[in-house]
């Protein structure tokens, strides 16, 4: 991407962020009831969007064609999941998972 294209991309991300934060205040003035379907989506979309993001992160992992079939990714994600369910410590889970992945791709699955 050229610098101009990067700036446009950032502007789009900024626009999308501002839209999602301000839209409710523009659309639904205080005191007026919010449509039930919107409230329903507001409650139900967030978990689905998080699931989408998790998949988005592994989109380029060669699960089928690659030499290791995504083993370093799967192992590190399993470590993050186990650690987090056990200790519920965000820093520990992220730091240990990332360190594990870096070790695996630099020294084991090279």
């Amino acid at each position: 991407m050229t610098l101009a294209q990067q700036l446009v991309t950032i502007a789009m991300v900024a626009l999308g962020t501002v839209l999602t934060r301000f839209l409710p205040f523009w659309l639904f003035p205080a005191g007026k009831p919010t449509p039930p379907f919107i409230r329903y989506l507001g409650r139900m979309l967030p978990p689905a969007a998080l699931g989408l993001l998790v998949i988005y992160c592994v989109k380029d992992v060669p699960f089928v064609a690659g030499q290791w079939h995504g083993l370093p990714e799967l192992a590190s994600m399993a470590l993050v999941t186990a650690l987090h369910l056990w200790r519920k410590n965000m820093f520990l889970s992220i730091a240990a998972g990332t360190a594990c992945y870096m070790l695996l791709v630099q020294f084991v699955f090279v």
């Binding site: 998080l50 993001l53 998790v54 988005y56 992160c57 993050v80 987090h84 992220i94 998972g97 990332t98």
Partner: peptide, 10 residues
Amino acid sequence: TALLLVIFLE
């Protein structure tokens, strides 16, 4: 990936 997985798990 770790960050988003942790947010998902939370």
